[in-house]
Computed example of a mutant assay.
Amino acid sequence: MTSNPIVALSGVMKSYGAFTALHATDLTIGEGEFVTLLGPSGCGKTTTLRLIGGFEHASSGRVEIAGKDVTESPPYRRPVNTVFQDYALFPHMSVAENIGYGLSVKSNNVPAGERKRRVGEALEMVGLGGMANRRPGELSGGQRQRVAMARAIVRRPRVLLLDEPLSALDVKLREGMQVELKRLHRELGITFLMVTHDQTEALGLSDRIVVMNQGRIAQIGTPAQLYDNPATPYVADFIGATNLFEATVEDREGEFTIFRLANGHLIRSRRPLPDAALSAGRRVTVGIRPERFQTVAFDGANRLDCAVLERLFHGDRLRVELAADGIGKPLFAELSRVAVPGSGVIASGERLALHVDPIDVLAFADGDRR
Rank of each mutant, 00 (worst) to 15 (best):
G32R: 07
F259P: 00
Q214K: 13
I258W: 15
V147H: 00
Q219I: 04
E164I: 08
R289N: 03
K68F: 00
R155E: 01
R146T: 09
G44T: 02
R146W: 11
A8Q: 15
E253H: 13
Q225V: 05
R118N: 05
V12G: 09
E121N: 05
D251A: 13
A218H: 01
L160S: 03
A365H: 03
E321H: 14
R283W: 05
M93S: 01
L193A: 04
G120N: 13
M93W: 07
V80H: 01
F19G: 07
P136A: 09
E97M: 03
G367R: 09
Y87V: 09
L166Y: 12
G102V: 03
G281D: 09
I153T: 04
S59F: 09
I258F: 12
V345Q: 14
R282F: 14
H185I: 04
P79Q: 05
L312A: 12
N213A: 11
D69F: 09
R317P: 00
L103T: 01
L9K: 06
R135P: 00
R62N: 04
D251G: 01
N263V: 00
D357K: 06
G141E: 02
V249E: 06
A132V: 02
R216C: 07
R208V: 01
S15N: 11
E187S: 14
R77A: 13
T196N: 03
L278F: 13
A262Y: 06
F19S: 12
G129F: 00
E33P: 04
T196A: 07
V105I: 15
A276F: 09
D366Y: 10
E33A: 12
V154C: 03
L273A: 09
N302H: 04
R337L: 08
G113M: 07
A241W: 14
L226K: 12
N263E: 00
I99H: 07
V195H: 11
A58P: 00
M1K: 13
K14H: 15
L312F: 13
L89P: 09
V211K: 01
F293G: 01
N229H: 15
R351G: 08
V95F: 09
E321W: 15
L309M: 14
F84R: 06
I267G: 12
D316I: 08
Q85D: 04
L203W: 11
I29F: 02
S104L: 02
N263P: 01
E31G: 03
